[in-house]
Design a protein around this nucleic acid. Structure first.
Lengths: 204, 204
DNA sequence: GTCTATAAAAGGATAGAC
DNA sequence: GTCTATCCTTTTATAGAC
């Protein structure tokens, strides 16, 4: 590929590494495959990123940063938890629809190497402000009182699991109807909101 | 280990394989490590299970069978969805507490090799009866009407994600307080039930 | 049935030409 | 900056003795 500019190669490799690592995980990824997909040579990967480990870390850092819920100012400026929730679900589900393999990748790799990757993760996510905001809403009597962290886990569960668990859920519940499952995912933001808003049981 | 009986070795190897595969995944697992942990020789693994792939399949099949929700007769004989839910949550969360690495293992491996493993999975899980049961409860007006599969996904999300997402959740929400997170998991069955039973929002 | 030794292949990394 | 060729280590798998 003699046509390519200098800086472009590095980006092509990173792009290829992103795809391969996220699809196969660190252990399953092959430098050769990354090179192939980047249209480059294996040696070039080492020229730019020295080791597989180091290339992976770059990918992971970026991926985690994408995956972690971010609470920008606009999101925190909403006037109630209810509107925050609508806003957040919309943004976050859209993100997951665009990066469906991210959840399982992040969770698996964090499991594989918690100590090292925890370092990388440090400082990227901050649930402090959002926890305070929810707590206030509970104190004000706008939201049912419960452990705030638990509530956050519940919301994230409902968002993330349908993506991370897709290989299983689509098969056993949707009988491998791919289109049907995609529809389900597309409506997910709205569904979660409705589910949370309603009571599950009618009597008693 | 000349003391061991013939049949015992095979079981020891399988036991070791279970641990290593579930902890590291197929790609990260090493036959050497399995041999070491079984107190046996690498060659012996091949004697009993021929290939790594085939040994893995045995482990996966068993693991999936454990992980998949089973609806025994007792579970289906309960008189309402409400009591079914209490019963199911109790059983399933206990299972996950005993096998905390199962969810991520199953989900990752299904992702890695969907076609092959889907074959293995076939027939192990059956949500038909439970879907019918829930549907009837909705028709009878005992449960809020909604897509049944969606309801099942929601319940499974709330059960499974806290385990699969532990490396992340424990760090960012519990500030790596291991004891606190274990407490959270121990109360999970009850928490989920309460969460589902209550309405999230008080006003409106 | 269990071991040692070794083959055979894969995969990460480096040297050196251009 | 990019390539070819090659080294070195790891890892699966097998042959063959006991």
């Amino acid at each position: 590929m003699a046509i390519k500019k200098e800086k472009v190669s590095k980006e092509l490799i990173l792009e290829a590494a992103r795809n391969v690592f996220i699809e196969k995980g660190f252990d399953g990824a092959r430098m050769q495959q990354i090179a192939d997909r980047a249209g480059a040579n294996k040696a070039l990967l080492h020229y730019y990123f020295s080791t597989k480990e180091s290339l992976f870390e770059d990918v992971f850092k970026e991926a985690f940063s994408t995956f972690a819920p971010h609470f920008h100012d606009e999101l925190l400026k909403v006037k109630s938890f209810k509107s925050f929730l609508v806003f957040f679900l919309d943004i976050y589900i859209k993100l997951l629809l665009n990066h469906p393999y991210l959840p399982l990748f992040i969770l698996s790799e964090l499991q594989r190497n918690p100590d090292k990757l925890a370092q990388i993760v440090k400082g990227i996510v901050d649930f402090e402000l959002i926890q305070q905001m929810i707590k206030k809403e509970m104190d004000d009597g706008n939201v049912v009182k419960m452990d705030v962290r638990e509530l956050i886990v519940n919301i994230l569960s409902l968002c993330i699991f349908p993506f991370a668990g897709r290989p299983m859920m689509q098969r056993v519940l949707w009988k491998n109807d791919e289109v049907g499952y995609v529809n389900f995912l597309n409506q997910r933001a709205e569904s979660i909101y409705k589910f949370l808003e309603s009571t599950l049981f009618i009597n008693n």
